[in-house]
Design a protein around this nucleic acid. Structure first.
Length: 480
RNA sequence: GGCGCGUUCGUCUAGCGGUUAGGACACGGCCCUCUCAAGGCUGAAACACGGGUUCGAUUCCCGUACGCGCUACCA
């Protein structure tokens, strides 16, 4: 492997959305490139025409950019080795197939999908190994010519050596060896003229100058085929690094059936890109110490493939929620207010009153896992009267002691000049002195009268946010 | 069925021959506190199993079990 500038790629197929596993693969590629001052390219692997999904590429790019992952080269921004969409590179693949055919390293296969299907079913039934029987590998020249003349559709398969084994070094797994006799004569060119993944990824990685292939573990078994192709073409293969899989709770490969897998699903649910990236980065990688909170920038400096583990990782939604709450809390008040803008508007807190909006989110920040959670806490601060729904609360408010507290509070509040949280706290202290009521008996009636809730942030803070007039009106409303 | 890869608390993980096996999420307790969150402290909780190698294995080697992946004219 020659020492050249690092160049990696994230090569998803446009199936409609970005899978969180794909996000992690993209992230690791991105981090590896950034760490080594290299280049990261986005390549679209759309060689399966039957799976074409409208708008999928745009969606993919939107999700990647939302996560903060920006590519140096790709279908949108172009680059020196484009195009970056495989369906636009078919001529290149055909040329390489022709070369292989000419050199006797590949052959035409005229078997129909039905025949292959039958053969497979039979092997399955007899519980034998499932592999193509290579019947077309031995076709005579005449045979091939006559079939071509009648226009019989065909595929092109690679001629895998009949014996021996191939060993390679994986940056994550170490030495891996595979025997040739268990490798199928893989189809390289489909009968519709499009290449399979196996051919296209090798041809593209080579021509795009990819130095490190970082991809999911599901590709490990076919890596031998890919390496064989490099050999056929006389090319230097890139370094290989196969990432452990992301798993469902039952430890199967993370799939749609068992929950959300699309990045956009998480986005819609109120997860922050910072949180999702942080969480997913730690699914398979760790910094070697106890740190867990990372920004993308920090990850760019810390990441290394050496610290990527080998075993699959269960996607634990509970921990992701925790990361979200942490990142939400780390946000400056202005940003948090922006995220909560919809609910602040609904609560009637004027958009121009940025000071109040930021004070509100600062007071409520530690209660939130998602921005939307703020709605549940805002009713206490909204305009108008509060509603006391529980019977228990109503009877507490009616108690003689509570009524004394209210009267004392009202008298002092009228004279109160400054309505800051600390002043209000001091004032409540005076209520305590006057009435002799303290602790829970003092605060709970006030809290209920002011907010209608029995739980919430510091009462001084809340009364400040409700304002002097509002506070007095609310307490007044509870006086018999 | 074949092949490959993997296996430390429920989950994410640290550990790279000698540790009271550490941290985080979740869970329990305590503290803080008017309350609820947050925060602090704390508790319970793991080396899949069997053989080697070694003075000594969670760590190295081999088997077994289990799990997962691949086995398409899908990626």
């Amino acid at each position: 492997m020659t020492q050249q500038p690092v160049k990696v790629r994230f090569a998803p197929s446009p199936t409609g959305y970005l899978h969180v596993g794909g996000l992690r693969t993209a992230l690791y590629n991105y981090l590896f490139a950034r760490k080594h001052g290299g280049i990261v390219v986005l390549r679209i692997e759309d060689t399966d025409r039957s799976r074409y999904v409208e708008g999928a590429v745009e969606n993919l790019i939107t999700s990647l950019e939302w996560a903060g992952l920006h590519f140096d080269e790709g279908p949108k921004q172009g680059g020196p080795v484009g195009p970056y969409t495989q369906s636009e590179r078919t001529a290149l693949y055909r040329d390489h197939v022709t070369q292989l055919l000419d050199e006797g390293k590949a052959y035409r296969c005229f078997c129909t999908p039905e025949e292959l299907e039958d053969a497979r079913a039979r092997q399955q039934e007899e519980r034998r190994e499932q592999a193509y029987d290579r019947r077309c590998r031995a076709l005579s020249e005449d045979d091939i010519r006559s079939r071509l003349q009648t226009g019989t559709p065909y595929t092109v398969r690679m001629k895998v050596p009949l014996g021996g084994q191939l060993q390679f070094h994986d940056l994550i797994r170490g030495e891996v060896s595979v025997h040739y006799d268990v490798i199928d004569d893989q189809v390289l060119l489909k009968s519709d003229g499009f290449p399979t993944y196996h051919l296209a990824n090798v041809v593209d990685d080579h021509h795009m100058g990819i130095t490190h292939v970082i991809r999911g573990e599901e590709w490990l078994p076919s890596t031998a085929k890919h390496l064989l192709l490099y050999e056929f073409f006389g090319w230097n293969p890139p370094e290989m690094a196969h990432l452990p899989l992301l798993l469902n709770e039952d430890r199967s490969k993370l799939s749609k059936r068992q929950g959300d897998v699309a990045v956009e699903d998480y986005r819609e649910k109120g997860f922050l890109p910072e949180a999702l990236v942080n969480f997913v980065a730690l699914l398979g990688w760790n910094p070697g110490d106890d740190r867990e909170m990372f920004t993308l920038k920090e990850l760019e400096e810390e990441f290394s493939l050496e610290r990527v583990g080998k075993a699959g990782a269960v996607f634990d939604l509970e921990k992701l929620r925790w990361f979200n709450a942490q990142h939400l809390r780390n946000l400056p008040a202005s940003q948090l207010a922006d995220l909560c803008t919809r609910w602040l508007d609904e609560a009637g807190i004027a958009p121009e009153d940025t000071e109040k909006r930021e004070a509100v989110v600062a007071a409520l920040g530690s209660y939130l896992t998602f921005p939307a959670d703020i709605a549940a806490h805002l009713s206490a601060l909204a305009e108008g009267q509060v509603e006391i729904s529980s019977e228990e609360a109503r009877s507490l408010l009616a108690e003689e002691e509570s009524q004394q507290v209210f009267l004392s509070f009202l008298a002092l509040a009228e004279e109160q000049e400054d309505w800051t949280a600390t002043e209000i706290k001091a004032m409540i202290k005076r209520v305590q002195k006057e009435t002799g009521v303290k602790g829970k008996q003092l605060f709970m009636p006030l809290r209920l009268a002011l907010t209608g809730e029995e739980h919430g942030p510091d009462l001084g803070l809340l009364a400040n946010l409700i304002g002097k007039t509002g506070s007095i009106a609310r307490v007044q409303a509870q006086v018999r």
